[in-house]
Design a binder for these strands. Structure first.
Lengths: 268, 268
DNA sequence: TTCCGTGTGAACGACCTGTGAACGCAGGGC
DNA sequence: GCCCTGCGTTCACAGGTCGTTCACACGGAA
């Protein structure tokens, strides 16, 4: 779980158009955010790109290559750097690695291997990074904090259980899109949903209850009949609702619950 | 954290005596602790060696190589793995890297390059690790001194054992964030947590006992059901405290820094 | 209308966590 | 060499929480 999307942001500095084209195509289909640069970019600009990794052909830089490499690695210790360059000697490769490169591949090389090596570099960097920087997500009155496995409304926890939180997170990340039950189950529970399983429905109900309790006046989860659910925060009654108060947390005698889904169950 | 080993602990699994001899000699003069193994060692034993890195010739393992590689990488996510093997195809290299290897070198190769690549892998791992070492950390009534492997309350040691201290330090550094059991185990014990292992719980209990003894009236470790633990010092009973000390007003002494969230209280 | 999908409440059981204690191992003192 | 002590691991039990399941009521679609 804690599946934060974590797409990889990659830049390629190379002038070898054939190689770059093939690599780009492959990156495209893998869904990586990437950018091709044919000239050495000042380290400051690289910083601004917020990259995860860099594929660099040293030959683009001529004799300044070593300096550039060292500067980059010094300034961006979190950046994964894969040097991908033509023929090289052992001494050159060792020098590059010692200057801070994470890997060194010699052309000609297969794009798939380059990608696999970048993945390995990024994977290792991510794994050892302390995962503190997951920005909270704000939707409607909600603040969804992955680092706390919890959602808040004005600083107040909704007391979600783990499953409830994971469901909410999944729905919120797909904001606006309808998710089928099977897909939800698959991604939250981790395996295929058995036919007739109502777990998703039950959890949606629990989630709605807690959302309603913590953020009345908003509707977050919408049912799509015969399909599944969609997350989309909507203020419900534009007036008289925004008071940040929890006035009488007694039982839900919500008067303004207009159309459907109020309580039915008399025999409850 | 986990402190010390400035030196790199490396194992080499290979039967190529010529290569191994040259490599060993070079490692020797570089002052690395290393060990050469000519047979595949069970993953458990590798764990016990507390390695930083492993150089592995897949051909030693025959067709079990992939399994072995995957198992090792799964069990020891912090271990740097460099596959160093004979001829290989792109597909094989990609497979190895995807299974968790950090690098792949094809023989024949220069020992210096192998060392440089191991260095790069280990560096990547260490880089993000250290950073917050030196200054004593003050949280609540606690003073956590990494240089002493000990925590104090008004100068009085809590008599933490090493594991207890490492657990406390890890939790405290992640202050405010919920840490999953698996993550805690991985980072304190150094390898993947076996299913059903209760060690983390037991140590949390021991830690809580010692914290309660030394700093009653504060709660430090909070349980998050189904997830793990969170460190956040909270004064428990604002009154009835002897208020003995003016805790060093350094940076961290904020008790109620974050909005408190619910945590599902154990024992309460 | 009928059929099927969804909302709802409740109850059961599985799982999770706290806790105490026993075990095995390693190191130090005698 | 032997014993003692400290430490980390493992086991068993207790209590609580949470997830699943069931039965039924409601609502949309044919």
């Amino acid at each position: 779980m804690t599946t934060q999307p974590e797409t990889t942001r990659l830049a390629v500095i190379d002038t070898d158009s054939g190689f770059v084209t093939v690599l780009s195509k492959r990156l495209e289909s893998a869904g990586w955010q990437h950018r091709v640069l044919s000239t050495p970019v000042p380290p400051d600009e690289l910083v601004a790109m917020k990259l995860n990794a860099l594929v660099l052909d040293l030959s683009v830089l001529g004799s300044d290559g070593w300096d550039y490499l060292e500067r980059i690695c010094g300034m961006l210790p979190d950046l994964g750097v894969v040097v991908c360059t033509g023929k090289s000697s052992v001494a050159q490769r060792v020098r590059g690695l010692r200057l801070g490169a994470d890997d060194w591949v010699s052309k000609p090389c297969h794009p798939e291997e380059v990608i696999a090596r970048v993945e390995a570099v990024v994977r290792r960097r991510r794994r050892s990074r302390v995962q503190t920087d997951v920005g909270p997500m704000v939707v409607g009155e909600l603040e969804i904090r992955a680092d706390q496995f919890q959602a808040f409304v004005s600083g107040q926890s909704l007391d979600l259980t783990r499953r409830e939180f994971e469901l909410l997170q999944l729905l919120a990340e797909a904001k606006g899109n309808v998710l089928e039950r099977e897909s939800i189950y698959q991604r939250v529970w981790g395996y295929a949903m058995a036919h007739g399983d109502r777990s998703v429905d039950v959890f949606v109900r629990k989630l709605r209850q807690k959302l309603e309790k913590g953020s009345p006046g908003w509707r977050y989860i919408h049912t799509h009949f015969g399909i599944g659910y969609r997350f989309d925060p909507e203020p419900q009654a534009p007036e008289a609702q925004e008071a940040p108060l929890p006035p009488a947390p007694t039982d839900e005698a919500e008067p303004a619950a207009e159309q459907q889904d109020s309580e039915m169950s008399s025999a409850g």
